[in-house]
Design a protein around this nucleic acid. Sequence first.
DNA 1: GTCGACCCACAAGCGGGGGTTGTCGACGGC
DNA 2: GCCGTCGACAACCCCCGCTTGTGGGTCGAC
Lengths: 302, 302
Amino acid sequence: MEPELRQMRYFVAVAERRSFTRAADDVYVAQQALSQQIKALEDILGVRLLERTSRRVELTAAGAAYLADCRRILAASGRAAQHARAVAAGEVGRLRVAYTVSAVYETLPALGALLAEEFPKLKMETREIFAADVCRTLREERCDVALAPMTSYPKGILRRTVRREELMAAVPDGHPLAGLPAVDLVRLRDETFQLWPREMAPGYFDAVVGACRGAGFEPALDDTASGSNAWAGIAAGRGVNLVVASLAHQLPRGITLVPLSEPRPGLCLDAVWRADHPHPAVPRFLDVCAELARRQGWPAGG
Amino acid sequence: MEPELRQMRYFVAVAERRSFTRAADDVYVAQQALSQQIKALEDILGVRLLERTSRRVELTAAGAAYLADCRRILAASGRAAQHARAVAAGEVGRLRVAYTVSAVYETLPALGALLAEEFPKLKMETREIFAADVCRTLREERCDVALAPMTSYPKGILRRTVRREELMAAVPDGHPLAGLPAVDLVRLRDETFQLWPREMAPGYFDAVVGACRGAGFEPALDDTASGSNAWAGIAAGRGVNLVVASLAHQLPRGITLVPLSEPRPGLCLDAVWRADHPHPAVPRFLDVCAELARRQGWPAGG
DNA sequence: GTCGACCCACAAGCGGGGGTTGTCGACGGC
DNA sequence: GCCGTCGACAACCCCCGCTTGTGGGTCGAC
C-alpha cells in the first residue's frame, strides 16, 4: 500500500486546522472519514503524524516534516496538471521547425520573433532542410512543422500556405538588365539558369520552370548548379535565376536583383505538418503565421 | 476531481512499456483497469496523454511533459515517506538541547561531537539556561531535551542520569590550600561560599550544601553571588566554592582547583525530557549519552 | 485477399474501501 | 456536576476500481 494524494490533502487540512472536525468541513467529508484516512496514512508510513488529545491535535516531529513534503507534492501535482494543459494548448513546450532556404531571409525570423512575443514559453528550435526532405523529416518526427515551397502533399501531410513570395531575376552585377525598374521574364530566354536540380527542391524548381514556360520559353539549365554554388555561378556571370524577393535581405556579392513585370511569378511558401499526431503548438504556429501575414500585408498566394 | 498517485503510477507504467497490456502485468491489474484509469486521468486533466493505435501507444507532447512531472512527484512521495520514517526514528531532524553551565565545559561538546558522528543528519541546536528554568523550557516546547543537575522531577518530566560530575574546590590562586594534591572538604568550613542562590540552580545548590553538611558544617553563603560574578568573587579572594571538575577545561583567571579527598562530592548531570510528546530523537540522544559514558568511563552517579 | 495474432476500448457485474450516520469516552469550562 | 466539544469506534451503504467477457481495428503471414 502506498500513500495517495487524497490522504495527503486530508492530512494537510487537519494539520492546518489543528482539528479533525474543522478540517472535515474544509474537505467536505465527515470527521470520521478523516480519522480513518489519517489512520490509514499513518499505518502506511508506520509513523504517527498527529498527537491527538480529546481537546486538540498537534503535529509530531515526523508529521511536521511530512506536512512540508505533502504541501510540496500537492503543489507539484497541481502545477503538473496546469503544465500538461498548457502543453496541450500549445502554449508551452518546444516546437521543432524545419525550413528551406526560401524562408530563411524574411519569413522565418519574422515568425520566430512574433512567436516568441505571443507565446514566450514556447521554445522554437529550427533546422534548415532541403524541400525534398520535408515529408520524410516530418514523418520521422524529426520536426513538428516545416516551412517550404511544396508541390505534392502525400497522404498524412497537411499544409496551409503562409505567403506568396514574389520572385525576382537574379543577375550578375554587370548584366545589361541590372538596374532596370522592371523587366519582362521573356528577356531571360537566352540565359542559362543556375537552378537547383528538381530532386533537391521540387516546389522551387517547378515554380521557376513554370514561370518561364508561362513566358513562352523553356529555360536552359546548368546541371552543375546545386546548393549554394548556384549563387556563385550567377555572380561569376555564368547565368541567371529567379529567386525569392526576400533574398534582398542578404544579397550575396556580385548579384543584382531585378523586378519582373506582370504577371509577376511567385513561390508559395507553405506550413506543412503531420495529419495524424500534430504537435499541439502547430495551431498556435499557424495563428502566428496568419497574424504575421495580416500585419505585413503578405499576399496569400495560391 | 483531482489526479491520484495511483493514476500517475499507472500512467508511468503505460508510458514506460508503451503498452497497456504489458504495463498491466507490471502493476498487477487487468489491461482494462489501466485503460479506465488512464482515461479517468485524461478526463481530469482535460488533456490527451497517450495516442493509441491498435498496434502501439505513444506519448503526446502533453503526455511527455506530464510523465516527467509524474516521475518527480512519485519519487518525491517515496522520499517524503522515507523522510517521515527517519524523523520518527530520530535519525533526521533538529533536536533542541538546553543545558546548564555545568555541562558546557565537557559533556555538551563531547555529546555534540558524537551525535554528529553517529547521526549526521540530526542537527543539534543548543541554548544555555539556568537549571531552575529546565522544566518550564521543556513544557513550553522551547527545547526537546535538557542537560542539567536536577533535584525534583515534576509529573510529565522524565530523566536519566548521564554522568556524575566530580566536584572540586575552587579557591583563589594564592589560597593556602591551592596546589595541595587533595584536601578534606571540612577545611573549607570557615570560608564564605560564592554559591548561586538556590532559585537559580537548585540541583547544584543542594549538591554543594549537602556535601558540606556531610562534612559536618553549614557553609556560609555570600548572598551577592549570582551567575558569573561568583567566579569573580572567588578570584578576588572573597570566598571559595565547589565546582564541577570539568571547569578545568576553561578555568577563569585567578582561580585554582583543588581536588577533594574521599568521600568526593559529586553532581549528577541528568538528561531531562517531556514524558508526553518526547522528541523522537530523544532515544537517540540517550543512546549517544550512554555510548559516550562508556567510552569515557564516566561514573554513572546516583 | 484472408486468416490469425495482437492490442485497446466497451460493457456488465462483483467486491472492497471510502464514505456515511450513530454512539461512546475523555477532557474543559461554566 | 452538567454540558459542549472533540476524536475514536462500530455498523451500514454505495460508489468506484477491478474483474471477466467481448468487439473492432491493424499488422503480418501465407
